[in-house]
């Protein structure tokens, strides 16, 4: 991928917490409309990577570019308005607001131009319509995850960072969620999909990178990753086996 094709460029990003390096020189690119899988054992820095890209904290070193603009250290609300959004590993909707209010606020404040999908479409797309007038507090965890995604979509994003959205879903929900993500990618929304469940990830994309201890140890196809000696070694006894 040339510079020109990349929507997101992460370059030599280091994230230190005290003396500990959660990310230790990570670089990768995501093209417009591409889905990239981000794998790695627990504590390898996947969520930290999403946090840095979405502006939760500025990286200790390195740079992040979005649509050829340097966005390193920019605040999340500015990034949202530029077209970057995300979901959370454990969902974080506005609990005291209704489902519809959650989505409407994101459209009102984060929305860029006119939405290709209206609020009603988004609610339908993520099967949230029947709860629209309920406080988000009353949703179960799978529904709250969908609401996180609905809120992200309401900002009309060009890139969505998705943090373990499959964890805890039942087989039917998993299949539907994979469909959803494929549909988003086919609409030209780029996705960075952090996932432990490989059977889910392979429904969404084939291109993955693998992190271990804050370093990238593999980049290529998911199929090839499964046979890579180092990947197998770091995943021994964890989800990659089962997946």
């Amino acid at each position: 991928m040339s510079h020109k094709d990349a929507l997101l460029r992460v370059e030599q990003v280091v994230m230190r917490f005290g003396g500990f390096r959660a990310l230790d020189g990570v670089s990768f690119r995501v093209a417009a409309g591409e889905a990239l899988g981000l794998l790695g054992p627990n504590g390898s820095g996947k969520t930290t990577c999403i946090n840095v890209i979405s502006g939760v904290y500025p990286p200790s070193a390195g740079r992040v570019f979005f649509a050829d603009r340097d966005i390193t250290g920019k605040a999340p609300n500015l990034l949202a308005r530029m077209g970057i959004n995300r979901t959370f590993q454990s969902p974080r909707p506005f609990l005291s607001l209704t489902v519809r209010e959650n989505v409407e606020l994101a459209a009102a404040y984060g929305g860029r131009g006119s939405l290709p999908m209206g609020i009603e479409d988004i609610l339908d797309f993520l099967e949230l319509r029947e709860f629209a007038e309920k406080p988000a507090e009353g949703l179960n965890s799978a529904q709250q995850k969908r609401l996180d995604l609905a809120r992200a979509l309401a900002t009309n994003p060009r890139l969505v960072l998705i943090d373990e959205i499959a964890a805890g879903l039942n087989p039917l929900e998993l299949r539907k969620m994979a469909q959803c993500l494929r549909a988003l990618a086919s609409r030209g929304i780029a996705l960075l999909v952090v996932e432990h469940l490989l059977s889910f990830l392979e429904e969404v994309t084939d291109r993955v990178i693998v992190l271990n201890a804050g370093r990238e140890i593999f980049e290529g196809s998911l199929r090839a990753a499964r046979h890579d000696q180092e990947v197998i070694r770091v995943f021994l006894g964890t989800a990659a086996h089962a997946g």
Partner: peptide, 11 residues
């Protein structure tokens, strides 16, 4: 309710 979520919603 959640200031980080709010920021991500563009607020």
């Amino acid at each position: 309710d959640d200031s980080l979520s709010a920021a991500m919603a563009g607020i």
